[in-house]
Simulated scan of single mutants.
Amino acid sequence: MRIVAGEWRRRQLRAPTGEATRPTADRTRETLFSMLQSRLGTFEGLAVADLFAGSGALGLEALSRGAAHCIFAENDAAAIRALRANIAALRAQPRCDVRPASVLQLGPAKAPVDLLLLDPPYGSGAGGVALDRLQRLDWIGPASWVALETARDEDAGARSLQVDAVREVGSARITLLRMPAAAD
């Protein structure tokens, strides 16, 4: 597993030990960030949240491409160790906030983030549940982009968000979501 592009391009990342975490494949990450690049134009200065973070590959990829700051939420101990080791190896500590907790334990946001990256366990339905809660707690605002990775045959389950795009890569489905446009 490696960083695909940006400041830390080709740098290797450590994956958590055990079977509890399924890291996003490089090809899937490359597709996701290509989709985001075409919509965002740049990652410069973005506030990002990598939820169900695992090794932190998604958030670290965003930071490598110029994001200003990333909040990582993860509750598996082995994944947290790998995440912290990856952040330290890249000397990214000043731009990272690691929260060793379940996504569902996060409190209200101080302000909506620009980009939320969610990679919950496949088949769990946790992504849709988390998105509903995060929207109620103001993590998602009108300008936010949400990227949700699920199994290829799994519904995103995001009832209150609008689907912008869907791509299937291997066994994964990437869904980009936004808040619905306000009616005039």
Rank of each mutant, 00 (worst) to 15 (best):
residue 85 A to F: 01
residue 134 L to F: 06
residue 138 D to G: 11
residue 97 D to R: 14
residue 58 L to M: 12
residue 8 W to S: 08
residue 72 F to L: 13
residue 128 G to L: 12
residue 93 Q to K: 09
residue 72 F to K: 10
residue 94 P to Y: 05
residue 37 Q to H: 05
residue 147 A to C: 07
residue 135 Q to P: 07
residue 56 G to W: 04
residue 158 A to T: 03
residue 146 V to G: 05
residue 53 A to N: 10
residue 147 A to Y: 02
residue 100 P to W: 03
residue 91 R to K: 15
residue 178 R to A: 09
residue 106 L to R: 03
residue 89 A to S: 15
residue 131 L to Q: 02
residue 174 I to E: 04
residue 57 A to K: 01
residue 69 H to S: 14
residue 10 R to E: 14
residue 100 P to L: 06
residue 178 R to C: 07
residue 39 R to T: 03
residue 114 D to K: 10
residue 149 E to Q: 15
residue 125 G to K: 04
residue 165 A to K: 04
residue 151 A to I: 01
residue 108 P to L: 07
residue 63 L to G: 08
residue 19 E to K: 01
residue 35 M to Y: 00
residue 98 V to M: 06
residue 118 L to N: 04
residue 171 S to G: 08
residue 91 R to C: 11
residue 58 L to F: 11
residue 79 A to W: 06
residue 11 R to W: 11
residue 76 D to A: 13
residue 72 F to T: 06
residue 157 G to F: 08
residue 23 P to N: 07
residue 37 Q to K: 04
residue 95 R to D: 09
residue 93 Q to F: 02
residue 102 S to H: 00
residue 176 L to I: 06
residue 172 A to P: 03
residue 170 G to P: 05
residue 62 A to I: 13
residue 158 A to C: 04
residue 146 V to K: 03
residue 99 R to C: 12
residue 81 R to C: 02
residue 159 R to N: 10
residue 171 S to T: 08
residue 106 L to F: 02
residue 18 G to K: 00
